[in-house]
Design a protein around this nucleic acid. Structure first.
Lengths: 213, 213
DNA sequence: CTTTGTGAAAATGTTCACAGCC
DNA sequence: GGCTGTGAACATTTTCACAAAG
């Protein structure tokens, strides 16, 4: 049980968790680091070392109790059971994310969409209401929304930066805009960038070099 | 100019490229490692070191020619100018990806969608035809599709693994299914996993620990 | 004076190897 | 026999610091 957890470890642990939930769903009760490693394409030592940053979860000679480990890892990664999430941008990507089944399943509750298009405001997408982006602060405070997923076109970037800089409740941002956001705030806001076209560039690099991953 | 390029370097270079294209669009002609670092939230040394894996692109005392660097990095990451891409799964995520403007802009041409739903087969989504997944090998060979983006529900995972294991032309896979794929093939296939709910778990971990990124 | 490119040092991350337990 | 947890060894990656160039 060590102090500084590598971010790579956190990413892998999230991957283990996904896999463990799948195993739980399939009815597997116990799994060894060897088998979990095989399923997630890492080494058994890596699995054990990663888990050891957070505690001792296994039984020598047996392996890990799938149910227990799922609960432990959920707690470690999520901190609290339920998070309220909003999506900024009710375009095709935003709408697809509202439908993404695994968010709700993991208790990331999408409770609002935001857009600036008058034709969309007031409508519902998959039972989630679209609010005027001008109401962002009011709605996020009212609904206690701490996570914002940004799915707007690049052109709206400045507006989003301003809106988030003024906001006082959002603590985390998942950014699908392919430009690094510059949010000016004294509060700490955690940001994760997901640039989909970047992934394709990395993929073609791997293909060209003949690497698996 | 060294031999083994870290994958983290490749990821950052793709990020620089995205940023440089934005600068080019804004009319910036020259940029220093310092300024590029600020825009992409890394250190100037990191930028220079990363680029040095691939060559000497800068002018001492001046910086990097934005136009030239964009062209060089495009060549390095993509290998060839144009790639044909298909999307498996014409659900909301698949449809959103067809609409994602940056794919076409970067010459990743989406030329086919695949699904197993008879109601969708034969229709068009954003001018891209939906084919029967049973025709996967025929269509990919005919259209010379080397990259597959997987946007199917988890339940279709086994079918996808089988179809890809049989296929002889796909060289790269961008996998949005939140389970690591197990493709049995003697050919080398590069795979990149993008698990969206995993990102939320990492985000809540960062929030809880009070880390920016 | 500014900025690149890069060895060398420092920091970080992964693998090894084995004690201890079932 | 089978498996976990973990220091220590090893490997990789990042940062430092500076010579060389415009």
């Amino acid at each position: 049980m060590k102090k500084n957890v590598p971010i790579a470890t956190v990413e892998r642990v999230a991957k283990y968790l996904r896999c463990l939930k799948y195993l739980r769903y399939k009815g597997t009760k116990v799994i060894s680091s060897k088998d979990l490693a095989e399923l997630t394409k890492v080494t058994p030592e890596q699995v054990r070392k990663d888990l050891s940053y957070f505690g001792k979860f296994g039984k020598t000679g047996t392996g890990y109790d799938v149910n227990k480990l799922v609960k432990k890892l959920e707690k470690i990664l999520k901190g609290k059971a339920k998070w309220n999430v909003c999506i900024i941008g009710a375009g095709s990507l935003g709408s697809a994310l509202v439908n993404y089944p695994r968010f709700k399943e993991s208790n990331f509750n999408i409770v609002a969409l935001f857009d600036n298009n008058p034709e969309k405001i007031g409508k519902e997408i998959n039972h989630i209401k679209v609010y005027d982006i001008a109401e962002f602060s009011r709605i996020t405070e009212q609904k206690k929304i701490e996570i914002a997923v940004i799915a707007v076109p690049e052109s709206a970037r400045n507006d989003i930066e301003n809106i988030l800089s003024k906001n006082r409740i959002i603590r985390g941002v998942l950014n699908f805009t392919p430009i690094t956001l510059n949010i000016k705030t004294r509060r700490k806001i955690s940001i994760i960038d997901v640039d989909l076209s970047q992934k394709l560039y990395i993929l073609t690099y791997l293909i060209t070099k003949g690497k698996r991953r």
